[in-house]
Design a binder for these strands. Structure first.
Lengths: 149, 149
DNA sequence: ATCTTTGCAAACTTTTTGCACCAAT
DNA sequence: ATTGGTGCAAAAAGTTTGCAAAGAT
C-alpha cells in the first residue's frame, strides 16, 4: 500500500523515525480497516511482535495523529477508538454493543455549514461521536419488550 | 423551582430516597445551568456541605441519569460533563478551551431523521458530542497565524 | 424496622510519563 | 554520533466498588 510510504515520508519530514514497532502498528491499523482501540491494536501487533508494549502503541498513535494520518473518537465508556483519517466518512457508535458504523460525511454537511454560519463553530470532522442505538440492538430491545409483556 | 419537586417524586416512585446530599447535588446542577464535571459539582456542593464525597456525587448523578433527569457527554480528554436533560438543546464543545455551548436541537433534526431512515440508527439526543473549535478560539488561532508570519 | 445511601478507602481502567537502553538516521 | 523511540514500571486521571455506619421512608 503506497499509503504507508507516504506516511514514512511525512514522518521523516517531521523529524521522526519509522521503526519496526511503528510499522507494525500502522499496518495493523490499515489492515483492521475499522475502528480499533489501543488494546485491539496491541493484540494485533503482538501476534507478530510480542515485545511491543502498549505504551508504544499509544505513542505511535499520538505520532500518527500529529501527522494527521490517524484520528480517534471517544466512546462513552472510556476507551477511545482509533482509525485512519478519512474525511469522507463519519461514525455512528452504538452505545449498547459499541459497534461503529461509517456513514457518508455528506449527511453532516448541512449541519456543519449551519454551525459555522450561525455560531462560527468549526466542527472537527472525524471527531464527532454520534452516539445512539444501532439497528440490531434496536431490534433486540423491541424483542425484549415483547417478551416482557 | 418546582422541577426539583418533580424529581423528588420520581425518585421516590422508583424506590429511591431524597437525601440532603442528593438535594445539594441536584440544586448545584440546577444552579450551574451549564455543563459541569463531577468535580465541578463536588466543589459547588462542598462549599455548603464539605462532608459530601466525590463518590456520592457520582452515585447521585447516576441515579438522576436513571431517572432521565440528567445526562452526560464525554469530551475528548477524559472527564465527562453533566447537565440537566433538555431535549430542546444540543451541545457543541470546543476542544481547545473546553467550553460548551448549547444550540437548538432543531439543527440536528434532519440528521437524526436521515440516520433513522437510512440506517435505522436511533441517535441518542443529548449524548451527542459535537467537537470542534469555537468562535473565540478560532479567532485566537487566526491571530497567532498572523503573528507567525 | 427496613432498606437505601453515605463516606471512606481501595480497586479499577485507560492513558501518560520518567528513565535507561536501543536503534534509525 | 546524534537524537528519537522502546520497554518497563510506576504514576496519573477519572470513575467505580465493597463495606460498615448513618439516614430516609
Amino acid at each position: 500500500m503506497e499509503r504507508i510510504e507516504t506516511v514514512v515520508k511525512d514522518l521523516r519530514a517531521a523529524g521522526g523515525r519509522m521503526t519496526s514497532a511503528r510499522r507494525s502498528v500502522l499496518s495493523a491499523l490499515v489492515a483492521a480497516r475499522s475502528h480499533v482501540t489501543a488494546e485491539d491494536l496491541l493484540n494485533l501487533v503482538q501476534a507478530d511482535s510480542p515485545e511491543i508494549h502498549l505504551s508504544t502503541v499509544y505513542r505511535t498513535l499520538e505520532a500518527l495523529e500529529n501527522l494527521g494520518v490517524v484520528d480517534h473518537v471517544h466512546l462513552g465508556h472510556g476507551r477511545a477508538v482509533y482509525h485512519l483519517t478519512d474525511s469522507a466518512h463519519q461514525h455512528i457508535v452504538c452505545e449498547i454493543c459499541s459497534s461503529v458504523q461509517e456513514v457518508p460525511a455528506s449527511l453532516f454537511a448541512q449541519l456543519e455549514k449551519d454551525l459555522m454560519d450561525k455560531y462560527q463553530f468549526k466542527v472537527r470532522m472525524n471527531h464527532f461521536a454520534v452516539i445512539g442505538t444501532c439497528k440490531n440492538c434496536l431490534e433486540q430491545l423491541e424483542k425484549e419488550k415483547l417478551v416482557q409483556r
